[in-house]
Simulated assay, not measured.
Amino acid sequence: MDKTVRILLAFGDGRLHGVRDIARSLTLPKSTVARLILDLADARLLVQDETSGQYRLGAGAARLGQAYLEGLDVRTVSAPIMADLQERSGETVGLQVREGLERVVIASNESKATIRSGFSIGERLPLHAGAAAKVLLAFEQEEFRGELVRSLTLTPLTDRTILDTDQLQAELAKIHRQGYAVSENEVSLQSTSVAAPVFGGDDRLSAALVVTGPVFRMTGEVVKVLTPLVCEAAQAISADLGSTHYRN
C-alpha cells in the first residue's frame, strides 16, 4: 500500500496525531512522514491543530466522505442484506419509500414458497395502512409527520384499517418508541408484515424494510422471531449507508 494512503488511513480514528507517533506506528522514516503529511495538508485532507501542532482529518477528507455517501444507492446497498433476510425468514422481503402520500416498492426478494405474499417492484401502495406505511410515517421528522397524517385520506382497505386520525397518531408514536411495526390484514386479507426503518447518511429516514408473508405462516411466535431479524437487517443497511442513527 502506498505510504501516503497508509498515513491518511492512520487518521481514521478521528484523533490528533503528530509526525513522530505516525512514523513510529507505521515504521516509516520521520522525514518521509513529515513530507507526506505536508502534501496531505496542502490538499486539505489533513489540517494542523494550532495549539498542539499535531494533525487531524481536514475538510477535504470530509468532502470525499460526503461524496461517497451521496453516491450510495439504498437499493444497491440493501441487496445482499435483503437476500440474506429472505433466506433466513423464508418470506418476501421488500424495500419501500415514500413518494408524496403514497409508498412505492423499489426492491423485492420474493419468497420461494408456493403460497406467498408481497408486492411488485414499482407498485404504489397507500400510506395509511400496513407495517411499511406506518414505519414511513412514524420515523418521518416529527414536525412533518403530523402534517402528513392530516393530509391522508383514511380509506378502509379491510376491517383492520385504522380510520381515525388520533388513533393512527397514537399507533405511530408507539411504533416510533419500539423501533418497528407489525400489521396483520390491514392492506389485504391473509397477510402479515413486519417492518423497520432504514436511515441514510444524513440520519434521516430513507426507506422501510419489510418482511411479508401469509398469516397462516406468520403466526405470533414466528413474528416474535422475525422482528429482531428485520430490525438487525435495517440497522445493517443504515450503517452501510453511513447512518449513525442506531448508535445514538
Rank of each mutant, 00 (worst) to 15 (best):
D159E: 14
L26G: 04
D240C: 01
V135H: 03
V5H: 13
G65A: 12
S111P: 13
V19H: 05
G146H: 11
A133F: 02
N248T: 14
G14E: 09
R75M: 01
D203H: 11
T227C: 06
G122P: 10
D13G: 03
R116V: 03
D21K: 10
P197T: 05
A83M: 07
K3A: 00
V194G: 02
L163K: 14
V194Y: 09
S191R: 15
A196E: 10
I237V: 10
Y68V: 13
D73L: 01
G146M: 09
G130R: 05
T27Y: 12
R15T: 10
N185Q: 13
I121C: 05
A195I: 06
S206K: 15
L229S: 08
T4M: 12
R150P: 01
R177C: 04
V105D: 07
R63T: 10
G201A: 07
V19S: 04
A133I: 04
A34C: 02
S111D: 08
S183W: 08
T244N: 10
L189K: 08
L16S: 00
E232D: 15
K3V: 04
D203M: 11
E171M: 13
K30P: 00
E186V: 01
L26R: 05
G200K: 09
A207D: 11
E143C: 03
P29F: 04
E232T: 08
Q235A: 04
V19Q: 08
A107V: 09
E186I: 00
D166Y: 05
T76Q: 09
V33W: 05
Q86C: 12
R177V: 14
L8Q: 08
L26M: 07
L152C: 09
A170Q: 10
A181P: 04
L137I: 10
S31Q: 12
H17S: 06
G146L: 13
Y246Q: 01
E87V: 15
L172I: 08
R20Y: 12
T76N: 00
V230R: 04
D164S: 03
V33Q: 06
M1K: 13
L8T: 05
R145W: 12
Y55W: 14
D202P: 01
Y180I: 13
D202E: 13
L69I: 15
A207K: 11
V77F: 03
A79Q: 08
V19Y: 02
D164K: 12
L57C: 06
L137S: 03
V5F: 15
K3T: 11
E102F: 11
Q66P: 02
V215D: 14
L229K: 10
V211C: 02
S243Y: 06
E142S: 10
A43D: 14
I237S: 01
T219L: 03
L125A: 01
E147Q: 13
Q190C: 00
V74E: 11
G14R: 11
A41G: 07
L125K: 00
G242S: 06
R98M: 03
D164P: 11
K3E: 11
I175D: 06
A59M: 09
D2M: 02
V33E: 07
A181K: 07
K112F: 12
A233D: 05
